[in-house]
Nucleic acid binder design. Structure first.
Lengths: 344, 344
DNA sequence: TCTCTCGACTAGAACGTTCTAGATCGACGA
DNA sequence: TCGTCGATCTAGAACGTTCTAGTCGAGAGA
C-alpha cells in the first residue's frame, strides 16, 4: 500500500490545466493571469485568480524554467560552517530577487565537496554560478568556467574569464593599523592566516601600513591561522616574547577570538594592556564575550556587487574584478595605548 | 549587443538530442545510457558515454524531475544563523543521497521569512518538506501541512498530520544533572531559555532531575535566554547571589558561552570553582576558548531519522514523533566539586 | 457597408527529459 | 521452415509551463 488512503492531502497539486478547466478558460489565459502580464480583462483576471487561490494553485517552477528561454536562476555555493557566508547568502537572496532572479543554493561542507555542489547547480541549469570563498585551484576554475559563467566572492581570481568581488584585504588591515596607531600604539603585531585564502594580502597590508607609519622595526608578524586555536596558540607565544606588543591585528575574527580568550584567561586586560582587532565582522565579533573591534566586509554591499557582476557577465560583459573598501568597526577590544607604551 | 560574440563559451549546453544526433542513436537510448539502466549493449553504452563526455553533457534536472512521476526531491528550510542547522543540513545531504533523493535547501534569515522559504520549496515541487527548528505557529503549520507532507526537526509538534524528530530535551538536561551530581555537586542552577523553543522541556527536565537526586531545595532556576548575552547577564546575577552555585546547566551552548565568558572575566576558575554544562554540542562548544562540556544532539543521527521519517510519510505512513536520546560530552568545563561544596 | 484596429482570448508547439509500447534482428528449439 | 524469445534499439507521448501565432468580436473610420 503505497498510494491509497493514507496519502497526505494535497499531494496531487493542481496545475494550470486544472485551474483553467475549473474557471472555464484556456491554460494560456490562466498563465497570463498568474504572471500578471497584460492580456486579460480585469473581470476575468479577478475570477481566475479567485479560482486559483481556492484550489491552492502554486506554479511549478521547474516547468516554468524549462520553458523559458532564460532560466533567470543564479547558482550559489557556500560553506555551511562559515558564518560570513550565511550573511552573504541572506543578502544575495534579496539582491537577486530585486533583479527578478531566483537563487539556487548548494552547500559545501566537510562531507560535501565543492565539485559536488557545483555539479548540482549545473544540473539545475543556473545561468551563472557565484562561488563564495571557493577553494578550487585555478585549473578547476578554468574548466568550470567553460561550462558556466563564474564569479568568485571573497576571493581573488587570476583565472581568465572569471569575475570576482572581494574586499581590499591589504587596505583593510591598513585601516586596523591606522586605527591602532592613532590610539597611540607603537608595538604592533600581526597574527597571520598562514596559507588561508587572503592571508598573503593581509600580511602584505600589515607590512605596508607599519612601514607607512615608520614602525617597521617595532612591528612583528607571527604565524597564526584561520581558527580560534591558531589565535590562541599565537597569543600564548606572544605573552612570553621579550617585548610584549601593545596591539594585535588578527587574521580574522575567529583568530582574534582565540587571542582574546587566551589573554582574558591570563588576566591580561583588554583593551587596557593590549588592544585586539579582528577581521570580518562576523557574528563572533558581536557576542557579549567579545564586543570585538574588527574590519567589516559589509555583506550587503558585497552581495549587491556579486549579483551585479554576475548579471553583467550574463549580458556578455567582460569579466572584471570588483574590489570593495572595507571599513573599521571600533568596538571595545581596542583602546588607547597605556602610558608605558607612549613613552618608548 | 546582448547575445553576440561576447557570450561565454558553453552557454548553449548540449541536450540529449544533441548527444543522440552526434552518436547516431535515439534520445531514448542516450537517456538509458546516462541513467545507467539496462537496455543498451556494452559497446554502444561506451560509445554514447564517450560522446556525451566529449560534448560536456550535463542532464537537465529540471526536465527530468518534471517528467518523472515522483520528483524524488526533499525540501529543507534552515536558519542561516544557526550553526547546528548547518551540521544538520550537511548530514541531510548524505542521508537523502543514500536513498536516491535530492535536496532542495531554502534558507531562513532575518530578512527572509520562513513563509517565503517554504513557498520557494513548494514551487520546486518537493515531495515533502523538512523544517529545521521552525518557528511557525500551529495554525500555519497545519495549513502548510495541507499542501505538502511536513516533518519538523529539533522541535516538537502538536499539529495533526505533522511528523517530528527531536531529542529528548528533558532527558538531556537530566544527563547533565546526573553528570554534575556524580562529580559531587549539590548546589545546581539552571539558566533557562526563557520562551525559546524547547526551553519548557529543559526547565522541566532540570526540575525532575534535581528532585530525583533529592536536591530540589538547593537547586535554582534563573531566567536566561538563547544568546550569549542572556547567559552573561544571568551569570552576573549569580555571582552576587547569597549562596553561589557550584554548577550551572545552561539552556544551550551560546548561553553557556556567555556564562563562561563572564566567569572567566571575573576570575572565577572553571571548572575549579564552578562547573558549566551547555546544550547542543555546536561548534561553539569546541573552540579553544571553551572546550565545553555539553549535551550533544548528534546531527548525523537526527538527519538520518529526519529523512527516514520524511520518506515514511511519503509512503503513506502515519505521522509520528521520533525522540532521540541525547548524550553527554564531558569536556573541560565540568569537574569535581570543590571541598567546601562537599562539606555542606 | 467594408475594412482596420485593438483588446480579449485560445490552439498548439515548444522546453529536455523519461516512459510506454512497440520494431527489428539474430538465435534457437521443434 | 517456422514461430518464439530475448536483447537492443526507437517512435512518440507525456510532464506543466510559456510563447507564438493566431481567432473572434466590437467599435472606429472611410
Amino acid at each position: 500500500m503505497t498510494q491509497p488512503g493514507g496519502r497526505r492531502a494535497g499531494t496531487a497539486r493542481p496545475t494550470l490545466a486544472d485551474v483553467a478547466r475549473e474557471a472555464g478558460v484556456s491554460t494560456a489565459l490562466v498563465s497570463i493571469v498568474m504572471r500578471g502580464v497584460p492580456g486579460a480583462s480585469d473581470a476575468t483576471r479577478a475570477r481566475v485568480q479567485a479560482v486559483a487561490d481556492g484550489m491552492g494553485y502554486v506554479r511549478d517552477e521547474r516547468a516554468r524554467k524549462l520553458r523559458q528561454s532564460s532560466s533567470r536562476l543564479i547558482g550559489v555555493t557556500f560553506d555551511l560552517q562559515q558564518a560570513f557566508h550565511g550573511d552573504l547568502v541572506e543578502h544575495l537572496y534579496g539582491a537577486a530577487a530585486a533583479r527578478g532572479y531566483d537563487l539556487a543554493i548548494s552547500a559545501v561542507a566537510p562531507t560535501r565537496d565543492e565539485d559536488v555542489a557545483i555539479q548540482a547547480l549545473l544540473r539545475e541549469r543556473c545561468e551563472v554560478a557565484v562561488l563564495l570563498g571557493s577553494a578550487l585551484d585555478d585549473a578547476v576554475l578554468a574548466s568550470t568556467a567553460q561550462r558556466v559563467p563564474l564569479l568568485l566572492v571573497a576571493r581573488r581570481s587570476e583565472v581568465d574569464g572569471v569575475s570576482s568581488v572581494h574586499s581590499d584585504d591589504a587596505g583593510g588591515v591598513g585601516l586596523a593599523v591606522d586605527h591602532l596607531v592613532s590610539l597611540g600604539h607603537r608595538r604592533l603585531v600581526h597574527v597571520d592566516g598562514a596559507d588561508a585564502p587572503g592571508a598573503d594580502d593581509r600580511r602584505r597590508g600589515f607590512a605596508l601600513a607599519v612601514e607607512r607609519h615608520g614602525l617597521t622595526s617595532q612591528a612583528q608578524i607571527v604565524p597564526g591561522g584561520p581558527t580560534e586555536h591558531d589565535g590562541s596558540r599565537a597569543a600564548e607565544a606572544l605573552l612570553y616574547a621579550p617585548a610584549r606588543p601593545s596591539a594585535v591585528v588578527a587574521f580574522n575574527d575567529r583568530c582574534a577570538a582565540g587571542v582574546l580568550d587566551l589573554l582574558v584567561r591570563r588576566q591580561v586586560d583588554v583593551p587596557g594592556d593590549v588592544s585586539v582587532v579582528g577581521y570580518d565582522d562576523s557574528r563572533l565579533a558581536v557576542g557579549p564575550h567579545a564586543q570585538m573591534s574588527t574590519i567589516s566586509q559589509n555583506a550587503a554591499e558585497m552581495a549587491e556587487a556579486a549579483i551585479d557582476g554576475a548579471l553583467d557577465l550574463l549580458d556578455g560583459g567582460d569579466p572584471r574584478e570588483v574590489v570593495l573598501a572595507p571599513h573599521l568597526v571600533a568596538r571595545s577590544t581596542s583602546g588607547p595605548a597605556s602610558g608605558t607604551e607612549l613613552l618608548d
